[in-house]
Amino acid sequence: MIRALMSVYRRDVALAWAGGGGAAAPLGFYVGVVLLLPLAMGPERALIAAAGPPLLWVAGALSVLMTLERLFQADLEDASLDQLLLAAAPLELAAFAKGAALWTALGLPMALVGGIASLTLQTPPAAAPIIALGLAVGMAGFISIGLLGAALAAGVRRGGVLIAVLVLPFFAPPIIFGAAAAAAASAGEAPFEGAFQLLGACCLFYAALGPIAAAAALRLQAD
């Protein structure tokens, strides 16, 4: 069963980067936003320092949202979803493996980019690892709950809007806690642990719920 899961994980990581696949465009979008927006905001240091952490989080959430439309739709269209349904592992775990692959291919690089970009956003260097870690946890949460939206909209043409309507409300709590933790860490005064713990709890809940709900939705799509 573990072998079957690892095979799904490895295939999806490979596909995400093969031939400019699913992860390149959202990562480029993320890099573009976090590098260009400070330029657009002008030389006001205080403004950039205040806007930086929320900017990293909002851009990250929207980048994840971009990838969700094709996540299961591609598998449904080429019928490889049927293979996941016949696999030697439950579909719930296969969905989890797909989410983990997307996190590896997109979430983790975005967290690293976010940590580095925070330095250009007037954040003290000591806060950069905390911001990167928070983003890594937050992206896992976005992707986990995003699995549900992606699965429900897999059979819908132009399902991106449907996915946005479905998952954006769920994106709100991690954004609130994650941006609060990042802001507290970069300001260097308030303790950030409380917000960080709430972020972790929220994302753990999503990681447990998302794959199970996604598998139920995918079984309906295959019928």
Binding site: R3, R10, R11, A14, Q83, A88
Partner: peptide, 11 residues
Amino acid sequence: AHVRFWAELFA
């Protein structure tokens, strides 16, 4: 890679 994927996916 396809055949390896199937070998692992279908045990």
